[in-house]
Simulated scan of single mutants.
Amino acid sequence: MNVALDCIPCYIKQTINTLAQTEIHEEQAREIIYQTLSLLPHLDPQGIPAENSTFILRKVNELMGIEDPFHNAKQESNDLALKLLPQLKERIRQSLDPLFMSLQIAVAGNIIDMGILKDFDVEGSIREAIEKSFARDDYVVFQQRLKEARKILILGDNSGEIAFDRLLAEQLSELGVEVTYAVKDRPILNDATMEDAAYVGMTDQFRVISNGSGFLGTILKDCSEEFKQVYQKADLVISKGQANYESLEALGREDRRLYFLLRAKCEIVAKDLGVQLGEMVFCCS
């Protein structure tokens, strides 16, 4: 998925939201914004939004001298999600279709996006996900393919959300599928890293690997050989979140193993998916 003019305000918003996680003075914050604005003309106009955002955000972190400005916020979102897990597990247990319910809960967690949405209502998102379900829904086809699958790779997205992904991984594992979960190699926005995976218990139950990259989304050319091998050997791949969609949507047109699970949080992505802003999807490209 290529960038559009409307991506430019999003770069600025992500910068401001990143600065808001710190205690730097307003004058310094303003200077950082000015310096990052000078990078905009040098971004690839034919590139991927997630890739361009990463270049901007890396510069912001460099100018602040802070490797992970979202560290405390990520911890808080993980704690919030963990508190909700017992009742969500019970909801899944009582469901007529536990796997489908776990997909709904996993996509509800996709609301935790501090780069785009400064304020979010996780519990409200869960209610909405269960009531409204998916605007695009390829679950029936996924079920058929799952019958023949042995290995499945989940591409993680945000902290907090990763706890809900654990419930999805549990359901897939109960169906006899070997689950591998991929996280970012280093901090970028509030994306999940190995630290988050360990904190929410994902590493206790499943194989968790770094994708070897610090880019938003999954930029395969920047990923490690280990990750690429796991990706190639997977029978199915569940791609969580908007940045993963942005970076893998074109590949998904040919790679029918790829399923995208996300909430459309910007007009550009919503239009590309053929859904309304804020709607949730579980679909092939």
Rank of each mutant, 00 (worst) to 15 (best):
V3W: 02
L5F: 11
D6S: 14
Q14W: 00
Q14K: 05
E26P: 01
E26L: 05
E27W: 10
E27T: 12
Q28H: 14
L37G: 05
L37T: 05
S38I: 04
L40C: 03
L40D: 02
P41M: 07
P41V: 07
L43D: 03
G47P: 14
I48N: 09
I48H: 06
E51M: 15
I56Y: 08
L57K: 07
R58I: 00
V60D: 12
E67S: 12
E67H: 12
D68T: 09
P69W: 08
N72R: 15
A73F: 01
K74I: 01
Q75P: 06
N78W: 00
N78V: 02
A81V: 01
L82V: 03
P86E: 03
Q87G: 04
Q87H: 08
L88K: 03
L88I: 04
E90M: 10
E90F: 10
R91S: 08
F100M: 14
F100K: 15
M101H: 06
S102R: 07
L103H: 04
I105D: 08
G109S: 00
I112T: 07
I112P: 00
D113F: 00
G115N: 03
L117A: 09
K118E: 04
K118C: 06
K118F: 11
D119E: 14
F120H: 05
D121W: 01
S125A: 13
S125Y: 12
I126R: 02
R127K: 09
E131A: 15
K132L: 03
F134C: 10
D138L: 02
Y139V: 11
V141D: 14
Q143I: 08
Q143G: 01
Q144K: 15
E148V: 07
E148N: 09
K151V: 13
K151I: 11
I152T: 10
L153A: 06
L153E: 08
L155E: 14
L155A: 09
G156I: 00
A163T: 03
A163R: 00
F164P: 10
F164K: 06
R166H: 10
R166D: 05
R166M: 11
L168G: 06
Q171E: 15
Q171R: 06
S173W: 10
L175T: 08
V177N: 11
V177L: 13
E178Y: 14
V179M: 00
A182C: 08
A182Q: 11
V183P: 13
V183C: 04
D185F: 04
R186S: 12
I188S: 09
L189S: 04
T193A: 05
E195G: 13
E195W: 07
E195Q: 13
D196S: 00
V200G: 08
D204C: 04
D204I: 09
F215P: 06
L216N: 04
G217M: 04
G217H: 02
T218V: 05
L220E: 12
K221Y: 04
D222I: 01
K228A: 02
K233I: 04
K233W: 05
A234F: 07
D235E: 10
V237Y: 05
I238H: 01
G241P: 14
Q242G: 07
L248A: 09
E249H: 15
R253M: 11
E254F: 13
R256V: 01
R257A: 07
L258Q: 02
L261Q: 02
E267P: 09
E267M: 13
I268P: 12
V269A: 13
V269E: 06
V269G: 12
K271A: 15
D272K: 13
L273W: 02
V275M: 15
E279T: 08
E279P: 14
M280E: 12
M280S: 11
C283A: 02
C283Q: 07
